[in-house]
């Protein structure tokens, strides 16, 4: 193979990744063991969720240690999925605590917690720009990365409490948009498999669909948060 092609796509995995591999696995195993031992010692349920993040990081490490493009394609969505699972489990924990409280029928005194936005100069000026930049950059990067970046932008905007009280119907519309994005994405996929000649169109459909979907889903979280506090 000529040297120019060798720098584009080599035949074998480069030597440096082969050298990385044993270290990577051993470190990952050590990290996972640390995480698990912390989990075993931990008593608080919420803290368990936090501690589990360590083995998940070790998982990323093990997968990435393969050192090919395939490995990156494998971790990329996995990162987002781990987050989604975390979200579901956290919600179940909160719901459990609420049910527990109801079953105890203890009259917990309602203390006044003022949910007003914080007055900080940096928040007033920086937040909108930050969100705008991240959403635009997320739009440039398609796929899971773009969705995550744009979602983070939307989410921080909603979390910092600039807007208050998005009506209930709005979020239902958002779900509709998310569903449409899902459909676009699936259609793009099928198109890609059936007619590879239309790859550009289908690729754009798939890329745009998934970014809209992921970003909206993440944005919904923030809206739901507002809903919940009834601000």
């Amino acid at each position: 193979m000529d040297p120019v092609t060798e720098t584009i796509v080599p035949e074998l995995v480069p030597q440096i990744f082969l050298n990385f591999y044993p270290i990577a696995i051993v470190v990952a195993i050590i990290v996972a063991v640390i995480g698990f031992s912390a989990l075993i010692l931990e008593k608080n349920d919420f803290q368990k969720i936090l501690v589990i993040q360590i083995p998940i990081l070790a998982m990323y490490f093990i997968v990435s240690a393969v050192g090919t493009d395939l490995a990156e394609a494998l971790i990329l969505p996995g990162i987002v999925v781990a987050l989604a699972e975390l979200l579901a489990v956290t919600e179940i924990l909160i719901f459990r605590e609420i049910t527990k409280k109801e079953q105890k029928k203890e009259a917990l005194e309602e203390f006044d917690f003022d949910f007003k936005p914080i007055n900080m100069e940096v928040l007033k000026t920086a937040i909108p720009i930050t969100c705008l930049v991240s959403v635009i950059y997320g739009a440039i990067l398609t796929g899971f990365t773009g969705g995550a970046v744009a979602g983070a932008g939307i989410l921080i905007y909603l979390f910092t409490g600039k807007i208050s009280g998005i009506p209930h119907s709005f979020w239902e519309e958002m779900t509709g948009i998310s569903g449409v994005a899902w459909c676009i994405w699936i259609i793009g996929f099928l198109l890609l498999f059936i007619t590879p000649q239309l790859w550009l169109l289908s690729l754009f459909m798939a890329g745009a669909g998934i970014i809209v979907k992921v970003a909206l889903k993440l944005g919904l979280l923030g809206i739901l948060g507002r809903e919940e506090y009834n601000v």
């Binding site: 969720i49 936090l50 993040q53 990323y60 990435s64 490995a71 990156e72 971790i75 990329l76 990162i79 987002v80 987050l83 975390l86 979200l87 956290t90 991240s134 990067l141 796929g143 899971f144 990365t145 995550a148 970046v149 979602g151 983070a152 989410l155 921080i156 979390f159 993440l218 979280l221 923030g222």
Partner: peptide, 19 residues
């Protein structure tokens, strides 16, 4: 894996928010 790295960093932000 620069794309994966960007994803990790941005997902980290969401992780903060959720927790």
């Amino acid at each position: 894996y620069t794309l994966a790295m960007l994803t990790v960093l941005s997902v980290n932000v969401m992780y903060y928010i959720i927790t």
